[in-house]
Computed example of a mutant assay.
Amino acid sequence: MAGTNSECLMDPNSGFCSLTKSYHSLRPNVALPPPSQPLSITQFIFSRLHSTTSFDSTFLIGAATGNRLSYSDLVFQTKSLALCLRKQYSLSKGDVAFILCPHSFRFPILSLALLSLGVIISPAMPGDSISNINRLVDLSNPTIAFTNSGPSHKLPSHLPTVLLDSPEYLSFFTQMTQYCR
């Protein structure tokens, strides 16, 4: 990989380097924490939010519903969900979670919660065939799966599964004291 923009002849408008045939970000580099200060990706993202964003501003808008999620709600719901997942399902660093769901309003929260626990995410699309999903499950060897009711039949029956549209799962976002003692 080329070290500087001049070495790789990067196009300043697109970030494309004709030498390496790859794209580079046009944004300035972000300082990463030193290796002696291990952070999860979620901790790092939240630390960047504290310094750059108003917590009352909108983080996400659901296209289908118009529901809005503020940065403060993102942080609260992610922490609440992570706590519940750790307590209810004993998820911890090194576990693998297979996620079989369409893009949704809550997908970023689930992803950040799992990553904050050190869980490895193996995503798949519900439109995949059962044989392809089984192949992906065999490859990733997950300890748990997350899906909606619709595509849940595509998952192997031996795999513990959390339904993302179940009342219990939805309560993890707001009522953590009830389920996470």
Rank of each mutant, 00 (worst) to 15 (best):
P167T: 14
P33F: 07
H103Y: 12
Q43G: 08
G127Q: 11
S116Q: 06
F44D: 02
L114E: 10
P34G: 03
S122Q: 00
F105G: 12
T65N: 11
D73M: 05
D73Y: 01
Y179P: 13
T177V: 09
S90W: 08
I109T: 11
D73G: 02
K79D: 13
M1T: 10
Y169M: 01
G66K: 11
L26C: 02
A113F: 10
H24D: 01
I144Y: 04
S51C: 12
L49C: 15
P142N: 04
V162G: 03
S140N: 13
L163H: 01
R27I: 12
M125L: 13
A124K: 08
G15T: 00
A82G: 13
G127Y: 08
Y23Q: 02
G15N: 01
M125C: 10
L85K: 14
S47K: 12
S140D: 06
P12M: 07
L139Q: 15
L83H: 09
I109G: 09
A145R: 09
H24M: 01
L136V: 06
F172Q: 03
K87Q: 13
F55W: 08
L170T: 06
A64M: 07
I109K: 04
P126S: 05
P34F: 04
Y89M: 03
S90G: 09
I61K: 03
S122W: 06
M10F: 11
P38A: 05
P38C: 08
G118N: 03
R106N: 07
N141E: 11
I144Q: 06
A97Y: 02
S80A: 08
A97W: 00
A82Y: 03
I121S: 07
H103Q: 15
S122T: 01
L60N: 08
L9R: 10
S54V: 08
G127M: 04
I133T: 06
C101D: 03
Y23A: 10
L74D: 09
I144T: 09
K79I: 02
L32C: 07
F16K: 01
S129R: 05
V30A: 04
C17W: 01
T161S: 13
S111P: 02
I109M: 10
S51K: 14
L74C: 05
R48Y: 13
A63Y: 02
H158M: 09
P126I: 05
R27V: 14
G94K: 02
D95I: 00
T53E: 14
Q178F: 11
L114P: 07
I130R: 15
A64Y: 04
A2C: 14
A31C: 15
M10L: 14
H153Y: 09
Q77N: 03
D95K: 06
R68H: 11
L115R: 07
P126H: 04
I61F: 00
S140V: 01
D95C: 10
K87P: 06
T147R: 07
G150V: 15
F172R: 01
S122N: 01
I121R: 06
A31T: 13
Q43W: 07
L39M: 15
A97G: 05
G66M: 11
Q178I: 15
P126Y: 05
H158N: 14
L110P: 06
F76L: 14
S80L: 07
P126F: 02
S54T: 10
S129H: 03
M10H: 04
L100C: 08
L26D: 06
P151W: 02
S116H: 09
L26R: 10
S70I: 04
P34V: 04
K154E: 05
R48N: 14
L139P: 10
D128W: 13
S57E: 11
V119K: 05
S14T: 14
